[in-house]
Design a protein around this nucleic acid. Structure first.
Length: 503
RNA sequence: CGGGAUGUGGCUCAGCCUGGUUAGAGCGCUGCACUGGGGGUGCAGAGGUCGCAAGUUCGAAUCUUGUCAUCCCGACCA
């Protein structure tokens, strides 16, 4: 017998969190690195998860009146130059296409031949190309609002990448809307951040805080950026979704003008909002444990996996029993749809097969063998709990929907508890420094969390934040009306912000 | 772009300092047997022109130079 490790994932979260994260992705078969630097291959298990996220989000977008469309991958370089802040924010990370044809070179390889008159950039985000299109579509107030979303890939040539959290190419959706009034555009911005919060909480079982970004953290070109911020298990913050009120900045840059009811020519008001495959990273770091990935049932590609246990002479009987069990379970519903049940009948060792599914995060495992058949029972393991239990078969079938619901809820509660335990209110600089400084500087332990602090202005605390590698995550929208004094400068301050180390 | 390191079967690496027969290990993979409710055991097997190029040498994975790539630390990051 080879000795089995105590945990399926090594190192553990406490030992080396970043490495643990990479290992979970590998063990759960979600993605792997590709030959292209910074780009990843999303494997079927990871992609099914993304598809489930897409479906849920897409339904929510449609329910709030949006339609899907598709705009080009390439954007003329000149388009990017139109909005000054936007250029500054994205120019450095753009991939540029300068040629359109390859021909053989003398060394037997290939070289680019036809140079483009105007270079094209690969979209890092689509405000400019979509805005240029909208300028043609919008003539009258009767053309508004335009409520469109696109599912797409974008490229940002980042210096340092991490799977799902920051990759050179990633998948996302970007909503782009145009409105006749600022009020309406602001409502849209708020509506969509609420959609994201709803999705994070109810589908991902991930608690989030809605808030506004400070000037320094805003989307380039935006008047206001709203975000949802989540706490990962290493207590660092992750921006999980953003919704931008762009004012008239982009409509002025791109000439999105309409004639109003009274006959005047006016610039339109625009918004944009997006979430990306980063959400998969968020899911991993919110729920997974030292045995691998943990999937919230509402997004799990498979709810229940049945593992037959048999010897050669009992195989036929066991298989018949579990096929019947599978069909009964599939006839049950969870979250308004049939329960997703699979049988894993591969010729592998039982233990190894079980761990395969543990590491991939399947919410419920059923091990079924001759002993269970005799008792008309199943051996049931919940991914959110360490021990498996024997359970009456009929009881399992009739309660499977509520069981999945319990798992979904327990994951949310656990994440919420972590966030509560590591959110503190801080009123002075000494406590602030202490909170964000590891006890062991050489190999920093997991420390910090969310610090709620009043602060007066961004510039005066910039140096302190840089020193501690802390950022202002957001100014929370709710329960934030009590004035106080700035934790660092002592000046009067109207609101609190969440301070945290971040991804 | 600065600083550091690494390129050896599918993966992780040893060997290099102190050149010398057919280049090793673990994991993985294939087959067979025994197994089978915490990720097994045994036996047999497949798989590598040691990143690339030049040089030194009777002889280079090993020494020298160049080159390419990747990783880590900085700077940067909706």
């Amino acid at each position: 017998m080879a000795k089995a490790p105590k945990t399926a994932i090594s190192p553990t979260r406490a030992d080396d969190y970043p490495e643990w994260y990479q290992q979970v992705i590998k063990a759960a078969d979600l993605a792997e690195n590709s030959p292209v630097r910074g780009c990843m291959v999303i494997k079927p298990w990871g992609y099914q998860l993304w598809e489930n996220m897409q479906r849920a989000l897409d339904d929510m977008f449609k329910a709030t009146g949006h339609q899907n469309a598709y705009f080009p991958l390439f954007i003329p370089m000149s388009f990017l130059e139109k909005e000054a802040e936007h250029v500054e924010g994205f120019a450095k990370e753009c991939a540029v296409v300068t040629h359109h044809r390859l021909e053989p070179d003398p060394e037997g390889g290939l070289r680019p031949a036809g140079q483009l008159e105007e270079p094209l950039i690969v979209r890092p985000t689509s405000e400019t190309i979509i805005g240029a299109t909208y300028a043609k579509w919008v003539q009258s107030y009767r053309d508004l609002p335009i409520l469109i979303n696109q599912w797409a890939n974008v490229v940002r040539w980042e210096m340092r990448t991490r799977m799902f959290l920051r990759t050179a190419e990633f998948l996302w959706q970007e909503g782009h809307t145009v409105h006749a009034t600022d009020t309406e555009a602001i409502e849209e911005t708020e509506r969509m951040i609420n959609v994201y919060a709803d999705f994070a909480r109810n589908w991902m079982a991930m608690p989030v805080t809605i808030g506004a970004k400070t000037a320094g953290e805003r989307f380039p070109g935006a008047i206001e950026t709203l975000s949802i911020e989540a706490m990962m298990q290493d207590r660092k913050a992750l921006q999980a979704g953003t919704s931008h009120f762009l004012g008239q900045n982009f409509s002025k840059a791109q000439d999105i003008v309409f004639q109003s009811e009274s006959g005047s020519r006016e610039y339109a008001w625009t918004t944009s909002w997006g979430v990306s495959t980063r959400l998969v990273g968020a899911l991993i770091m919110t729920h997974s444990d030292d045995d691998g990935f943990v999937l919230p049932p509402k997004l799990a590609p498979t709810h229940v996996v049945i593992l037959p246990i048999y010897k050669d002479d009992s195989r036929a009987a066991v298989m018949e029993y579990i096929h019947a069990l599978r069909d009964e379970l599939r006839a049950q519903s969870y979250d308004g749809a049939p329960v997703r049940v699979e049988i894993d009948d591969r010729d592998m060792r039982g233990g190894e097969k079980k761990w395969h599914h543990v590491k991939r995060g399947v919410p419920i495992r059923l091990e079924v063998g001759p002993k269970d058949m005799e008792k008309n029972s199943v051996f049931m393991g919940r991914r959110d709990q360490p021990k498996s239990v024997g359970m009456d078969r009929n009881e399992l079938v009739s309660t499977i929907g509520s069981l999945l619901g319990q798992i979904q809820q327990s994951l949310y509660d656990r994440a919420d508890q972590l966030r509560r335990d590591n959110t503190v209110t801080i009123t002075n600089e000494a406590d602030f420094r202490d909170f964000f400084t590891p006890k062991n500087p050489d190999t920093p332990e997991i420390h910090g969390g969310f610090a709620l602090c009043h602060f007066a202005d961004e510039a005066s605390i910039d140096a302190l934040l840089k020193e501690l590698k802390v950022t202002i995550r957001c100014v929370p929208s709710e329960n934030n009306d009590t004035p106080g004094t700035c934790f660092a400068t002592g000046k009067p301050a109207a609101k609190q912000a969440i301070f945290a180390k971040a991804y």
